[in-house]
Design a protein around this nucleic acid. Structure first.
Lengths: 273, 273
DNA sequence: CCGTGTGAAGAACTTCACAGCC
DNA sequence: GGCTGTGAAGTTCTTCACACGG
């Protein structure tokens, strides 16, 4: 019976569960909408519906923050907006840098959701000299050589990577070396970072694959076609599967032609410096 | 546990844990990279490192799929690629429609990760007449009035919503009515759908907010001093409740980390330089 | 030996249901 | 009465550790 867990002793004193933290932005968004409509208070039931969760979960989540509700009444919208904002750290200004201003990077830069939540795009950075100086979302793109200086001068601690997969790790390393300690990664690669640096990733194709899994299962149910277009998923033409053959005894399978360089190429790029 | 055929042991054909499903695309990506390098086999340890999870978890995950490994040796890369692809439903062709071809929609349409995984963009749809006919990622944008026809003719069951928040629910309703049963939602809104329809959402700003939460904690650990740039915007609403929690030191470890960050530093660099 | 595959222990998260307070 | 806040029960996910087979 080894009782010795030498890994991270449970300090469960004041920690907010990760699952709860992940839902706070959801509550915040719903509350902001209510606030804009000048709704003074909400019940857990109403707010839960607006946020797309169930009320017991919401009450439990809020209980980790403190007792901000009033029994028999509900929660004060404004007060809760403030408390959650504070808890999430959104009452301060977070300058961020975005590296890789291709299609996706540009879309992100134009996305209003950042600015409206306490995030400020301090710089857009790309490795393509042709991009440098071009305004994207009203901000001139800067060259990647200046990355360290930019981070330093702006006190940036959060970086967004929207480069092609091949460049992501290098960019990540430079960000971390320059002092960034939180990274949001849109490149389809696993980044390795030292302890103390947080990485969150958003992989567009992964979400679709998860949907496909469930979709396939629906089609395979004993009964199908709840509506119309269901059926056996009819794949009329082509459907050249990108995967290997079942039996495929051959381990050979040398690089199947395929001039691709990397699983997903797109976006102009930040290439090795 | 009968050691017999590895084909669908009755007990679990019905239940691959959701958490496992969510990781299968990760494994698939890592395996595809290995496959392109003609690596014949991998151990759970190596593959886990490449996918950014720990090996026990990976073995457990694979055990739900069946016994596809060889004790003392590891897993056959090609075979696993096929098995996972099949399990995820990627061995078939999934036509998808994307609604809302703005900045983000265009970026998604150009994203190579979809096409390379069995997904085929059957149509790009927008409500702006000015967009109609314009080619995006080589496909002419179609008008939203044709949505139902397009879905029907192409047997589409998966839709992607990249419209502004205000339009998302309406688009969603039309998609569902037309037969779509899986939706990937990029609009910052909670969609309500009937039973039987799956919705997954990707909210860019939520991820940043989660990072900010952890970032704030880091800053608060050492110094009592406020992080850096920008002073606290704190517009106090009501009395500040002493729910503080300086100690923290949560077990969070949040994000992608599984605790283990390659002690060896560099992991197989997947990408050719 | 090796590394897979897996019961079992443990941790995290969700849901229940009701006490407590307005 | 109505609704919050929360112990406790229930569920899902993760980690451990070792038997098993190549």
């Amino acid at each position: 019976m080894a009782t010795g867990r030498t890994h991270r002793p449970a300090t469960r004193s004041r920690g907010i569960p990760e699952a709860t933290v992940a839902r706070l932005p959801l509550y915040l968004r719903a509350l902001t909408a209510l606030s804009e409509r000048s709704v003074p208070t909400v019940s857990s039931e109403e707010l839960a519906a607006a946020a797309g969760v169930n009320s017991a979960k919401l009450r439990k989540d809020f209980s980790y923050l403190g007792s901000y509700g009033t029994r028999g009444v509900g929660y004060d919208v404004e007060y809760l907006v403030y408390q959650i904002s504070r808890e999430l750290g959104l009452t301060q200004d977070w300058p961020i840098v975005m590296v890789g201003i291709g299609n996706l990077g540009a879309a992100l830069a134009n996305y209003g959701g950042f600015a409206s939540r306490g995030f400020r795009v301090a710089a857009l950075i790309d490795a393509d000299p042709a991009m440098v100086g071009k305004p994207v979302a009203g901000i001139a793109v800067q060259f990647i050589d200046d990355l360290e200086r930019i981070i330093d001068e702006n006190g940036v601690s959060i970086g967004v990577i929207a480069t092609p997969a091949g460049a992501a790790q290098q960019v990540c390393d430079r960000l971390v070396a320059a002092g960034v300690t939180s990274i949001l990664n849109f490149a389809p690669t696993v980044l390795s970072v030292p302890d103390g640096v947080d990485v969150r990733k958003v992989d567009l194709s992964i979400e679709l694959q998860i949907l496909a899994f469930h979709e396939q299962r629906k089609a395979g149910e004993d009964n199908g076609a709840p509506a119309d277009a269901g059926g056996p998923v009819a794949p009329p033409v082509a459907a050249r599967t990108p995967v290997a053959d079942p039996a495929a005894a051959t381990t050979a399978a040398g690089a199947q032609g395929d001039g691709r360089n990397g699983p997903d190429g797109d976006m102009p790029a930040v290439m090795p410096a």
